[in-house]
């Protein structure tokens, strides 16, 4: 039996890897691993960005996707470079997941994700929460699937 969350995101499960262009200008290798927990009631997301030359991890993140009572996605996330946040789904095209929420220090984060075939694209931005316009650049990631999720692997 599948869950409403997996009905929408089962094709996102697995491990994805590709180049990330950070808003600050540098590049790295990004890896996302999405795993269902408790039979698909939530999806665990583990992220790590590696320095391309040294292969050392430069950022780490962890999160859970779940659905709220209205069926919208809620994303509870931790990143070692921005701390803890809760992002809520915002309207977008059906195949796109867009999320937004406050960060510490009166900042706001928005993230847009999409999976098309074996390509996972993600862009994110942090901006000052008290301004309506902020032209700071976005971080872009384009990843290829390197492993499908196999039940029992988690």
């Amino acid at each position: 039996m599948t869950t409403p969350l997996l009905s929408r995101f089962a094709h996102w499960l697995g491990t994805w890897r590709g180049r990330v262009d950070f808003a600050e200008g540098h590049q790295a290798l990004m890896q996302f691993t999405l795993t269902p927990v408790f039979g698909g009631q939530a999806i665990q997301v583990e992220t790590v960005a590696f320095d391309i030359e040294s292969s050392r991890s430069i950022t780490r993140g962890w999160g859970y996707f779940s659905l709220d009572r209205s069926g919208r996605v809620v994303n509870n996330i931790y990143g070692n470079y921005f701390g803890f946040a809760i992002l809520h789904e915002t309207p977008d095209d059906p195949e796109v997941l867009s999320l937004q929420g406050p960060l510490p220090g009166n900042e706001v984060m928005d993230v847009t994700m999409n999976v098309l075939g074996d390509e996972f694209t993600l862009s994110s931005r942090r901006w000052e929460g008290y301004t309506s316009h902020d032209d700071r650049p976005r971080t872009y990631t384009r990843m290829k699937r390197v492993a499908h999720y196999v039940e029992g692997d988690s």
Binding site: V37, F38, Q41, A42, Q44, W62, G63, Y64, S66, D68, V74, N76, I77, Y78, N80, F82, G83, F84, I86, P104
Partner: peptide, 28 residues
Amino acid sequence: YGVRTVLAPDLDGSLKTLSFSTRFGLVQ
């Protein structure tokens, strides 16, 4: 009842958790 949790330091050094609970959903 089941919970998946990550315990980590926030930017100010205080410890917080990021959790999914089968009973309560997402919890911090």
